[in-house]
Design a protein around this nucleic acid. Structure first.
Lengths: 205, 205
DNA sequence: CGTTCGTTCGAACGGTTGTTCGGTGAGGTG
DNA sequence: CACCTCACCGAACAACCGTTCGAACGAACG
């Protein structure tokens, strides 16, 4: 078998094992077995365990980013762009749960300098969100404010990016609209007073 | 030294090492050293590595839950209860970052039956949030809807439950208000149409 | 035919891990 | 004093880890 045929199944095997066991508990032997290779056979293709994690992360992030940019390109208004981001993320969570898991959990296991390289790609994804919020924001929030809002939004998405919240394409699409609406309405009116909550707070403190 | 004096520093050492390295990469030897004990000396107090993780998780969740219930007891209105939840969570994130990290990341490493026990405690925390949202919701959302909303809220919080978003008590308190407002406004108006976003969506699909 | 090259493997190496065992010594009790 | 308990430790053990080495195999090429 040639390299071009082996590589995809090696990466798929590595992704699955990493997501299932976590990076440290995942063993190269299990990855090799799942890819249909012996232990030493696997080392003919990849340099080591960390490189395997890097390759899988790099590839998964490229997929996620490509899916986002594709949807973003078809979105005309800032609100549609927000919806595109939400839909992309939740759709990715539904279709590629293992990939999302290592993106959110296992990337921290990388050592420098690969860690920074992946961190940069994650940052690029985040800054897509930040750009969208900047377009949307009518209040001209500071960069810090917009940055924390982006993290709020993506945190929300990761909060439901797991079964049993996402079960089918249709459910995911309708949930995306709900989430986008929830965030957008909150974001636009984030300075509105919640009168009784404020009163209760003052009484407490 | 007696057991009552050793236990706290053992648990603190374990918490720090688990949070710093991750459960699998954390070594019992490092925990023992940080607690001022030899390797075998540590085994005089605890049964093993997994029990150590369980004890730390159990204790941390108890602290978090106690802090929440204390604040909740002083909150009169549903809105104030929401603010109490947000403030508790973000304050915990600021004061006990290591504890929050293992609660969110390392609890999955537990094996049954301890895993279920911790999962139940996490569930109890979640259902506090669900109860609050049920009180707040004017639309009478379904249990599924409220449950996913709870996960959205806690996901948001975990999205910024990290430096550099939380730097001081004051910043945390003001950020808590912003976040609570953002979520509440969004939650209350979650069925409102975003007219142009909807239009753009229809054009896309 | 002989040689080389890419692919694959069995077997082993050194290191680290969680855990256990046998013992040491201090402090209290009779 | 003898006795026992509790806190603690050095040393070892077995298992597993990631990684490497040397060789076998078939195909391609001259």
């Amino acid at each position: 078998m040639t390299i071009e045929e082996r590589y995809p199944e090696i990466l798929r095997a590595a992704l699955d094992v990493f997501a299932l066991r976590g990076y440290e508990r995942a063993s190269i032997r299990e990855i090799a077995a799942r890819a249909g290779l012996s232990l030493a056979g696997l080392y003919h293709y990849v340099g080591g365990k960390e490189e395997l994690l890097f390759l899988v992360l790099d590839h998964s992030l490229d997929e996620l980013m490509a899916a986002l940019d594709e949807r973003l390109a078809r979105a005309r208004t800032p609100h549609a762009k927000l919806l595109a981001l939400v839909e992309t993320h939740l759709d990715f969570a539904l279709q590629r749960p293992a990939a999302l898991k290592i993106i959110n959990r296992d990337w921290e296991m990388l050592l420098e300098p690969k860690r920074s390289e992946i961190a940069a790609k994650r940052g690029a994804y985040l800054s897509r969100g930040l750009g969208i919020l900047r377009e949307i924001d009518p209040l001209g929030g500071t960069e810090d404010e917009l940055s924390s809002a982006t993290n709020l939004l993506l945190g929300m998405l990761n909060g439901i990016a797991t079964r049993p919240f996402l079960r089918s394409d249709d459910e995911t699409r309708s949930l995306s609209r709900t989430v986008a609406r929830l965030f957008l309405n909150g974001f636009l009116h984030r300075t509105l007073d919640l009168s009784d909550a404020e009163m209760a707070l003052r009484r407490d403190s």
